[in-house]
Amino acid sequence: MKVVSAPQIPDRVNFGILLILIAYLFFSLTDGTTKWLVLLGYPAFQLAFIRYSFQLAIGTTEISFRGFDKNEIKDHFWLLVIRGAMLASVTACVFYSLKYLTLSMYSAILFTVPIFVSLISGPILGERVGPWRWFAIFMGFVGVVIIVSPFNESFHWASFLVLFAAIAMAIYSIITRKLAAKVRPHVLQFFTGLVGALVFLPFAVWLWQPVTLKALMLMTWVGFASWAGHELLTRAHKHAEASVLMPYSYSFIIYMTILGFIFYDEVPDEFTILGALVIIISGLIIWYRERRLKFKAKKDGAT
């Protein structure tokens, strides 16, 4: 009798990796386009308001179809507010700093997020930080010092805004981790859009500049690309664990360097390249230690 082989099961992990690579491509296109608009003279707060208004519009549509449980918001209201405020502060710092920093420098500093997550996960989540993680944290800060060194010709005080954005992003990530099992993704997206739109509304009204049709199209693209990036990022984590996906997030630095070179004639100097490499290596050390500890915990649990 002829044996018929079973149909192959799609490789969910590889699909998750593909999704996160596309997600960070969207994020890089968002920031690359925002830099263009900021250089045209549009206020960062106006762009941020339009970005969150777009996300709120999509989130409202999505939540009207999928619905929500009042307890999702009621039981976690203040965490949702803080989470939204953290991401809004990230957006404000990033959009403002893009006017002054090269895309490669900005992206390298921003990706100190895993380092700050490891640093503050202990007091917030009760996670133990071992000697290897402390070494990686120290190493990451050395990378930042190299980039923002006064000897770096690309140095600008706006670098410190991106560093603050990285801290806020780390807090946002930790809160998201706490809420992931309790609040559905589309509710998180809606609440993020709502908080961001409300935060930036008064600033946008005060600083509003007339918008041309071309600029409006670019702003709409920024809103869509940002929403799509967050949506794909969420879906990627449904197909693969964060410990598997984390190294691929550094594709963002590659994307941003390429975009900076093509559209803005930006060539990263030796300080930015060296600092970025140190930050990436420190992040990969943290990733490796976390993955090893999770594997050990699973192995101990199985026995």
Score class of each variant (00 low, 15 high):
Ile17Tyr: 08
Leu19Glu: 08
Leu19Thr: 10
Leu19Phe: 09
Ile20Asn: 00
Leu21Glu: 02
Tyr24Met: 11
Tyr24Trp: 09
Phe26Leu: 07
Leu29Gln: 10
Thr30Gly: 05
Thr30Gln: 14
Asp31Pro: 04
Asp31Glu: 09
Asp31Gln: 03
Gly32Gln: 05
Thr34Pro: 04
Lys35Val: 13
Leu37Ala: 05
Val38Trp: 03
Leu39Ile: 12
Leu40Tyr: 13
Tyr42Ser: 13
Phe45Asn: 14
Gln46His: 08
Phe49Ser: 08
Tyr52Gly: 02
Phe54Ile: 15
Phe54Glu: 09
Leu56Phe: 09
Leu56Pro: 07
Leu56Thr: 07
Ile58Gly: 07
Glu62Arg: 11
Phe65Lys: 13
Asp69Trp: 01
Asp69Val: 10
Glu72Lys: 01
Ile73Cys: 05
Ile73Leu: 13
Ile73Phe: 04
His76Gln: 12
Trp78Asp: 09
Trp78Val: 13
Leu80His: 02
Val81Pro: 06
Leu87Thr: 13
Ala88Asp: 11
Ala88Tyr: 06
Ser89Val: 11
Val90Trp: 07
Val90Leu: 07
Thr91Phe: 00
Ala92Asn: 08
Ala92Trp: 06
Cys93Met: 13
Val94Arg: 03
Phe95Glu: 02
Phe95Met: 08
Lys99Asp: 14
Tyr100Asp: 13
Tyr100Val: 10
Leu101Asn: 10
Leu101Pro: 03
Ser107Leu: 05
Ser107Met: 07
Ala108Leu: 03
Val113Arg: 07
Ile115Glu: 08
Ser118His: 02
Leu119Gly: 06
Ile120Trp: 06
Ile120Gly: 02
Ser121Glu: 10
Ser121Ala: 07
Ser121Tyr: 00
Ser121Cys: 01
Gly122Arg: 05
Gly126Cys: 00
Glu127Lys: 04
Val129Arg: 05
Gly130Thr: 02
Pro131Ile: 14
Trp132Gly: 08
Arg133Trp: 01
Trp134Leu: 11
Ala136Thr: 00
Ala136Gly: 06
Ile137Pro: 01
Phe138Ser: 14
Phe138Ile: 14
Met139Phe: 13
Gly140Asp: 04
Gly140Ile: 01
Phe141Ser: 08
